[in-house]
Amino acid sequence: MQTSQDILCIGSVLWDMVGRTDRHMKSGADVPGRIETLPGGVALNIAMTLSGFGLRPALLSVVGDDAEGHALVQRCVSMGLVTEYLYRSKDLPTDRYMAIEGANGLVAAIADAHSLEAAGDKILSALSDGRLGSADAPFEGVVALDGNLTTVLLAEIARSPLFAKADLRIAPASPGKAERLMPLISHPNATFYVNREEASILCQSKFEDSASAAKGLVGRGLGRVLVTDGGDPASEGTPDGVRSMTPPPVLVTRVTGAGDTFMAAHIAAELRGETPEAALQTALNAAAAYVCGETE
């Protein structure tokens, strides 16, 4: 089947409202800063980064048939993303995400992804109706999947013939949604991208570093995992062992979207044919450039 995209990005596509300040914040703080409204959501963040590496990602998600949705789709098209497979709902509003970041990192965030959850498997119709694949001829490329989907839908994906041949790259979206990914741990083609906290939640065990977290997830049956840990070493784990690398030291100016950037950069590096060591280094360099504000 001939398609015009290099990778599918399935999950949240929404507007991010992010407030940032260079001051340390605690509960109840009221400080000056900057507030931006930007295209976001895990799936869209990954797609935008992949586009920056010269790839053509297609989005599978829900976007409301409202003013916010039309503006968001126009932005996506202007960035070279494939939007023809989006489910455009007349009944569901475009989702939103709000975060506050201080000099001490992410202070608080609220993800309003209720439309994505309500849309359910409607966002996957192109994978079953022949446009991207079907049960008899499933999609065989790379799929970036985020944990903003419901537990029920993620469990269906784990056993669905539509994803039997896909190279699944999976991110939990947030520590609070990490447990949703449990059904996918045993998928033979799954690679998880998590931080150390998310790994601890999935294994129900506290890890002191990314290497032990990667080893723990592989021990649970996962074929491959990449675990980040802020400025401390990140690790890639497989049944053959664990490799770790330290990210470049940078001044952190933002954190929202850093994990998505790491994941997208790693996928792009592997699609270019980079070795596992080089791909991990490429991903760490991209994430470092993002958090210090060198890249969008």
Rank of each mutant, 00 (worst) to 15 (best):
D22Y: 00
D22S: 13
H24E: 11
H24I: 06
H24Q: 10
H24R: 15
K26F: 11
S27P: 06
A29R: 05
A29M: 06
D30P: 09
P32R: 01
G33Y: 06
G33M: 02
T37A: 14
L38E: 09
P39V: 00
G41W: 01
A43E: 10
I46R: 14
A47W: 03
M48Y: 00
L50A: 04
G52I: 06
G52N: 03
F53N: 04
L55Q: 08
A58C: 05
A58M: 05
L59I: 00
V63K: 03
V63L: 03
G64K: 06
G64W: 09
D66H: 08
A67C: 06
G69A: 03
H70D: 06
H70L: 11
L72H: 07
V73C: 06
V77M: 08
V82W: 01
R88K: 11
R88H: 12
P93W: 05
D95S: 13
A103H: 14
A103R: 15
L106E: 08
V107E: 10
A108P: 11
H114P: 12
H114N: 15
L116F: 12
L116M: 09
L116I: 11
L116T: 09
A118W: 05
A119V: 10
A119M: 04
L124E: 04
S125Y: 04
S128K: 10
S128E: 14
G130W: 05
R131V: 11
L132F: 04
